[in-house]
Design a protein around this nucleic acid. Structure first.
Lengths: 86, 86, 86, 86
DNA sequence: CTGCCATTTTACCGGC
DNA sequence: GCCGGTAAAATGGCAG
């Protein structure tokens, strides 16, 4: 079997599958690393006297506000297009 | 008080808090971007004929295999330490 | 209205709600009792000289092994169905 | 090696360990079954038109009320003993 | 009492 | 568009 080639079972498909699995796992690894970084920051905040529970609430609150802001923008865009303002 | 300087509002170090919020939000943004990338890859795999349910199951299986491996190592380490081999 | 009969308070079937609450609370009570039993066993093991950390790790390892087995079975089922073997 | 006996490695300890593992796993299995029963009840409630999120809130609320009630009772007992009423 | 782990709750995403 | 299951976030509990 030639170098670099996947198993003959499934042929090309097996190789493509392998690549998808690899790509996904790599991305998930990076994602996990970021999750750990975030935990780290919370931990650091805690050690400097902040209440992480409240800090989390703040983050969550800002998240929904950001979400609302986007929805309003989208609504505005919709209106604009409706009256030919785009 | 000089301009630009932070102060404690209600006993809270406002500037430090702001920085923590900023850092966390930045990391979460990156994390979210990665989540979207992952979704993208699944979508691409699907469009080239793969069954995403199977693909997800493969990823899940590999994840739990990795987890098992780690648990084994940790147990082994505990045994070693228990008999003074560390 | 006859005594003992339920009625809809604010459009809610009060009696049915009460029964669901009762059933859930009863089950949760039993669940909590089991959690205490488990703690008890760990405590007993510790008092007879076992390292609970190792014991917990063994349990964790066996749990993840079982999980892996299930994932394998499920993946196999998916494969079978994919090739019309169901 | 006689039937029914554990491996000689670790002698008696291995057998005792096995028993602890068995007992814990059995209890955890029962606990898991109860957790599934609870989910089942929520699901049933949902299918008869209840909002499970609110139902969960009710359960949680009653739990803290029960907790408060117990604390008050304990406080009362403390007072009683303090003045020789026990 | 602090960090860690399990559980629980919430949010999301794909399928029907 | 809902519903089911799946992953994320948050909370609580427990051991050290």
């Amino acid at each position: 079997m030639a170098e670099g080639a996947s198993e003959a079972i499934g042929g090309i498909a097996a190789e493509a599958l392998q690549q998808y699995v690899d790509r996904i796992e790599k991305l998930e690894e990076e994602k996990k690393a970021l999750a750990e970084d975030i935990k780290q920051v919370y931990s650091e905040a805690k050690s400097t006297g902040f209440d992480t529970k409240i800090l989390r609430k703040i983050i969550a609150l800002r998240r929904v506000e950001e979400h609302e802001r986007k929805e309003q923008e989208e609504l505005l865009d919709l209106y604009k297009r409706a009256i030919g303002m785009e």
